[in-house]
């Protein structure tokens, strides 16, 4: 997108009135901001033990943590979509008493430290939790220390990103199309599935990507609620933190691997979207 715009400007040079120079009062902080975000990353790259890299990223523990991270983050995103899109619809398209309160509560996980979120999940779904005790007593199901707990912790922390994004998209969408669909005989469910959802699909996609990225980087709620055991609950961020305790270089390798994989996935998705759009 940006590349195309730049190319167009290049071709038109000479025909177009050039905009004034970007003012330094914007440029300076802009560069500072970019540097602030990019430099730590550069630090990681500089300090990484490159000759050792290939061997270290293919160690079984690393690969199992990576695989766990990828599939749990994806599962958390799917779960967030299944629950979050209808929730966003409810918040954007209906009026019910307490809607504002529900809306505020939904965004709480954005504000609360994830560790607290993890503790809260323990209080509800833990073995002695409000619901967890019945799951344990009646079905013998224990959620903590399982990959399911990882998915739940990630969903708790990441779903608000999706809900907020999709709700915004729904509010911005032209509701007249929904009216048009209704005049054609479509009930609300049909309107949602065939008109509303396609219209906000880019917003849903963007929300899902944000949700996935947040789930992938989730640490606090996961380590608190799901624990930390290789292969079942030690996702990449937990592996990074654990490695940090004894071998900072290993933590660096893990971080770069996580970064590389997530960037690759996001870039692939972007390509696909650019095509669809």
């Amino acid at each position: 997108m940006r590349g195309r715009a730049a190319g167009a400007r290049h071709r038109d040079r000479g025909l177009r009135v050039r905009p004034g120079r970007a003012p330094w009062i914007l440029l300076l902080p802009a560069f500072a901001g970019a540097a602030f975000l990019v430099l730590p990353l550069a630090g990681l790259l500089v300090r990484a033990p490159w000759p050792d890299m290939a061997r270290r990223v293919t160690e079984p523990e690393v690969l199992s943590a990576l695989w766990l991270s990828l599939w749990t983050a994806t599962a958390a995103t799917v779960l967030s979509l299944l629950l979050g899109v209808p929730l966003a619809w409810l918040l954007a398209r209906t009026e019910f008493p307490g809607r504002r309160i529900v809306r505020a509560l939904v965004t709480v996980p954005l504000v609360v430290p994830p560790v607290v979120g993890g503790v809260a999940l323990l209080f509800v779904l833990g073995r002695n939790g409000l619901l967890g005790q019945y799951l344990h007593a009646w079905f013998g199901i224990g959620i903590p220390f399982t990959p399911a707990a990882v998915v739940l912790a990630q969903t708790f922390v990441a779903m608000p990103f999706l809900v907020v994004g999709v709700e915004g998209a729904l509010r911005a969408a032209d509701r007249r199309y929904e009216e048009a669909a209704a005049t054609l005989g479509a009930g609300r469910a049909t309107v949602f599935a065939r008109v509303t959802l396609p219209a906000v699909l880019p917003g849903v996609g963007a929300g899902a990507v944000l949700c996935w990225a947040r789930a992938l980087g989730e640490f606090g709620a996961t380590v608190t609620f799901a624990g930390n055991f290789p292969g079942t609950t030690r996702t990449m961020p937990l592996a990074v933190y654990t490695a940090m305790q004894s071998d900072p270089e290993a933590a660096l390798v893990l971080s770069l691997l996580l970064l590389g994989v997530s960037l690759a996935v996001l870039a692939a998705l972007r390509e696909k979207w650019a095509f669809v759009r």
Partner: peptide, 21 residues
Amino acid sequence: VPDTYEEDVRAVLTKVELGEV
């Protein structure tokens, strides 16, 4: 073989206190 490797001793204690382990 534990069910979880905690990052510090307080985290172990918390899990015990909550009855999760």
